[in-house]
């Protein structure tokens, strides 16, 4: 399946891109995260939530092929 992933804030600094697309054969969001963790070594130090199709989801959710986004919390004010 073809998946587009968006990165916000500090996560985009880890990935060095705000968006990428990749072919993925797994079926769960958690499996996609494992792939991303091995691709981006320092991602494991970051806090974020996962968004699929503009909706916050748990990582046990099935991938639907819609856009995924990794959303970190911001502290600044």
């Amino acid at each position: 399946m073809h998946i587009t992933i968006k990165y916000f804030g500090q996560i985009a600094e880890v990935t060095q891109t705000e968006e990428e697309s990749l072919e993925f054969s797994g079926s769960l969001v958690s499996e996609l995260l494992e792939t991303l963790h091995s691709k981006y070594n320092t991602l494991k130090n970051k806090d974020f939530q996962v968004v699929q199709n503009q909706e916050l989801i748990s990582i046990e959710t099935k991938l639907t092929g819609d856009d995924i986004a990794l959303l970190p919390p911001f502290a600044g004010g």
């Binding site: 130090n45 806090d47 939530q49 916050l56 919390p73 502290a75 600044g76």
Partner: peptide, 17 residues
Amino acid sequence: LFPNPPEKGSVANCSKI
């Protein structure tokens, strides 16, 4: 949205950035 505060040191916390 974010159940717990990030572990200290994992996110730049103050206005230094």
